[in-house]
Simulated scan of single mutants.
Amino acid sequence: MVDVTTAHFLHLCRIISPNFTLYTEMIHCNALVYNPKDLYNFFGEPWEGKVVQLGGSDPKAMAKAAKLVQDDGYKEVNLNVGCPSPRVQKGAFGAVLMKTPNTVVEIIQEMRSVGVTIPITVKCRIGVDEFDSYEYLYDFIKLISTTTGVDHFIVHARKCWLKGLSPKQNRSVPPLKYEVVYQLAKDFPNLTITINGGFNTTAHIREQLSLVDGVMIGREVMDRPMFLATVDASHHNVLPENIKTTEEVVDEYLDYVMTEYERGTPHSNSIVMAPLKMLYGGRRGKEYRRRLAALIMPRTKPLPEIVRDMQQMMQEMDFAGSGSGAESDNDNDNDGNVPAQLSACA
């Protein structure tokens, strides 16, 4: 989700619903260590429920980065040991760290030694390359949890191949093995186990919450952010009249854009406006995205002009008059408040 779950995208998600734990894109620890005054530009405003994902393999640099995150007011840090991209392989972090669990332990212990007291969680795969047996995963979780005190693991239910598959293929080619994560939850009843991978209906999410402690939703939220509103209706007992329409979400987001502009946050027009792209589906959604792309160009166009033109475009397209709103996934039964964690953005 690098370059997707930016601070701007997370703010859009929070406008849609405040009821989810949101994970930032993974940022390498050195980016923070070398730019300690730029954390707001990386992650946006700190709030309860925003988790900063860090990548890296140097325990001291990771510890410095985590301390900066804590000192700037962020409430939780996540160590990503599941990303399979070529960039993380070259830097020997991400999923590579699953091969060296002692390094993961050293990183977390170093974080604690420099005074990081906020929660630390670990996001991993069920396996990597030939290290894909359940015994290996069990030992990995046991070592980290017993030596560091980490008690929350977010587990992507696919293994990954660091050689031979692209990051995109690693999201689809290795089969999903949910039963492996279910077994972890049984074997480690004192840990919080969140499952990740392929969840795109409220029925599928509900099924998981009877077997594990939480569900992380990634690609579905990227492709259809208003899915969060659908999950709200099904799992958080939010009444329809309290769910924002897509038009209300756009209006609030444009207010945020102007606030960031006046603050002087140094991001390009395309990055700031990108979160709005996938709010509408169908044929009207295609027209909406075509017109939005045209509004953003040229790159030198002042952001206030883009906001003004976007507001005019929304009036012309008159989505409100066509009865738009949170999309349904044909799963309308409401099971009330669910005592489990729902996370967005892998």
Rank of each mutant, 00 (worst) to 15 (best):
270 S>P: 00
252 E>R: 15
298 P>D: 07
296 I>K: 07
283 R>D: 13
280 Y>W: 15
64 K>N: 07
152 H>S: 10
252 E>G: 02
161 W>I: 00
68 L>T: 03
268 S>G: 13
62 M>R: 08
99 K>C: 00
205 I>M: 09
37 K>L: 07
272 V>K: 15
102 N>W: 11
15 I>F: 04
232 D>E: 02
160 C>H: 12
135 E>D: 14
195 I>M: 09
205 I>N: 02
114 V>C: 06
155 V>A: 11
159 K>G: 05
135 E>P: 01
311 Q>R: 15
159 K>W: 07
308 R>I: 04
3 D>R: 15
216 M>I: 05
346 A>D: 11
190 N>I: 00
171 R>K: 13
204 H>M: 10
236 H>N: 07
226 M>R: 13
240 P>F: 03
57 S>C: 15
68 L>W: 10
182 Y>T: 00
234 S>R: 14
339 P>M: 06
69 V>I: 13
97 L>T: 00
107 I>N: 05
58 D>V: 10
264 G>S: 11
216 M>F: 06
228 L>M: 15
67 K>D: 05
24 T>H: 08
261 Y>G: 02
132 D>M: 03
212 V>I: 11
128 V>R: 04
213 D>Q: 11
267 H>C: 07
101 P>L: 04
170 N>L: 01
338 V>N: 09
251 D>Y: 14
90 K>W: 13
131 F>K: 08
258 M>E: 15
17 S>P: 03
90 K>P: 02
29 C>I: 00
117 T>K: 10
43 F>E: 02
312 Q>H: 03
247 E>T: 15
121 T>G: 01
255 D>T: 14
318 D>Q: 01
49 G>M: 04
288 Y>P: 04
303 L>N: 02
306 I>K: 01
162 L>E: 09
16 I>W: 01
136 Y>H: 07
8 H>P: 05
275 P>M: 09
217 I>T: 04
51 V>K: 03
265 T>A: 02
159 K>A: 09
106 E>T: 08
148 T>A: 11
102 N>S: 10
153 F>M: 04
15 I>N: 02
330 N>C: 09
11 H>T: 07
91 G>P: 07
318 D>A: 12
238 V>H: 05
254 L>G: 10
272 V>I: 15
84 P>D: 06
224 R>S: 08
184 L>N: 01
108 I>T: 09
274 A>Y: 14
137 L>T: 04
340 A>D: 05
69 V>L: 05
61 A>L: 14
3 D>P: 00
275 P>Q: 09
18 P>Y: 02
85 S>I: 09
1 M>G: 02
276 L>F: 12
120 I>R: 03
236 H>Y: 11
152 H>W: 04
264 G>Y: 13
284 R>W: 07
5 T>D: 12
232 D>G: 08
111 M>T: 11
241 E>V: 08
159 K>N: 10
26 M>D: 06
239 L>W: 01
8 H>V: 00
294 A>D: 15
33 V>Y: 06
231 V>R: 05
125 R>T: 06
276 L>Y: 11
138 Y>C: 01
15 I>V: 11
80 N>Q: 08
163 K>N: 15
284 R>Y: 12
283 R>M: 12
75 K>M: 04
82 G>S: 10
